[in-house]
Design a protein around this nucleic acid. Structure first.
Lengths: 242, 242
DNA sequence: ATGTAAACCAAACAATTGGTATGCCGAGGC
DNA sequence: GCCTCGGCATACCAATTGTTTGGTTTACAT
């Protein structure tokens, strides 16, 4: 079981980093404890001081932060292969929550093991550092999305981003992918109200851009959606060199 | 001259990281080229592939990103002691611009020197990694600010954050600090229009929260502003341990 | 089968925020 | 000295988005 978990991580890291055999071997020997969680459960809570990092093997997760007056803002969405709280390795206190969006299979890796690995295998350390930097790049785009795009553009951008990331890990079938999220959670992603999310979704459907049954969304007209979004994938830093 | 530059960096890193004498010494020996730039100049351009990192010695800088339709969103503000493009060490292509806000004195450190340093002094590497993680934490708060706070709250939050960060490096005198920024740039920080920024500023002045002459802002009623902002400094991760 | 809760949909209305136009003032160039 | 330009202020109007409310469907438990 731990080997499945490790391989998700290795796939992820080798996709956008250059690692050698010894690096991969070291990754395979990481002690990973598996745990399953239902949807909408807290994985790591704001204010806590985690001693391990969480590897997402299966399912969707997200990070979110509450304002003092009780509003929620989603900060990022996470898909299989990612380590959504890698920052806790060097930032002792969580400044936000990490939650499951759907039922998830998770792997937990002790900080001590990761720190040791980083000392032994500098290239792995660099790869992990790089992952946190890509994380930050995605935050930057998220800022632009909320700050300077209209509700329509915002939503289009979110769909295109998720599709693009899922495709990179082979979880799409042609233009189609499944993305199970509630309209309320979408609103918290986009800094909008639920009603307005609904409005925009209706208009997308009328224009034949997406299909949606219950909380499963599918892109129909991908190129059009991409155009609406003004999507430029540079910020995903999908490719290692150059 | 280079020693002044290095000391700004050392002050910054030792403030929130535990480094020993050899680490500090290694930092002091970094080759740093100084350069001065006028206000509103591009330091590192979107799309470029920098071979050095930029240390801000004096002045204000900011990072910004354009949307395809020409709108600008500011992603972060930077104050002396910070390395605003440290991410370029592992992310080869810039996904945004780095610019001077005011006239700046900058130090440039070759990537090669930093990479070498990271291999020799793992604790320095961790400290630098940590800086990029704090960066990301600030992006997260920026997202919350734009996504879930009203224009008034947003602006209050920005002022309180900048004040708090300037105080940490000893650049405030009691409640007072100077923050030279144009209303247009403020708008790009907050995801608002210039007119609305002006409205909010007027109301802040009427309420005696801030003073502003030309593009120099000063906080008058700090505690009130902090309350309006709903400010919680956790995300700044100002303290090393725990 | 029935009840309940959550998600979704829809309409009317309200509020915040954006756009455009205009005038003023101070800084700097000639 | 004068001109131009950028930044600031203000007014008016428009548009986007939020709020409130209520109704419908779906899922699931009893």
């Amino acid at each position: 079981m731990a080997s499945n978990l490790a391989s998700a991580l290795i796939t992820k890291l080798t996709a956008s980093n250059i690692l050698d055999g010894a690096d991969v071997q070291a990754l395979q020997q990481l002690p990973i404890k598996q745990r399953r969680l239902a949807a909408q459960q807290i994985i790591v809570a704001d204010g806590s001081q985690p001693q391990e990092c969480c590897l997402l093997e299966e399912g969707f997760a997200f990070r979110a932060k509450m304002t003092p007056d009780g509003h929620r803002q989603v900060l990022s969405l996470h898909i299989p292969g990612e380590i959504p709280d890698l920052q806790s390795l060097h930032l002792n206190v969580m400044d936000h929550d990490l939650l499951t969006l759907t039922p998830c299979s998770l792997g937990f890796i002790p900080h001590a093991a990761l720190r040791n690995l980083n000392r032994q295998r500098p290239k792995v350390a660099d790869a992990l550092w790089r992952e946190t930097l890509i994380d930050a790049a995605m935050f930057r785009e998220w800022i632009v999305n909320i700050g300077r795009r209209s509700a329509t553009e915002r939503m289009a951008h979110l769909f295109v981003e998720v599709h693009s990331r899922l495709r990179a890990i082979g979880r799409t079938t042609d233009g189609d992918f499944s993305f199970p999220i509630t309209q309320g959670d979408l609103a918290d992603c986009l800094g909008l109200s639920v009603v307005h999310v609904n409005r925009v979704l209706q208009s997308f459907r009328k224009q034949g851009l997406i299909r949606a049954e219950r909380s499963e969304y599918r892109i129909v007209d991908h190129s059009k959606l991409q155009e609406v979004a003004g999507f430029d994938p540079t910020y995903l830093h999908a490719h290692p060199g150059a």
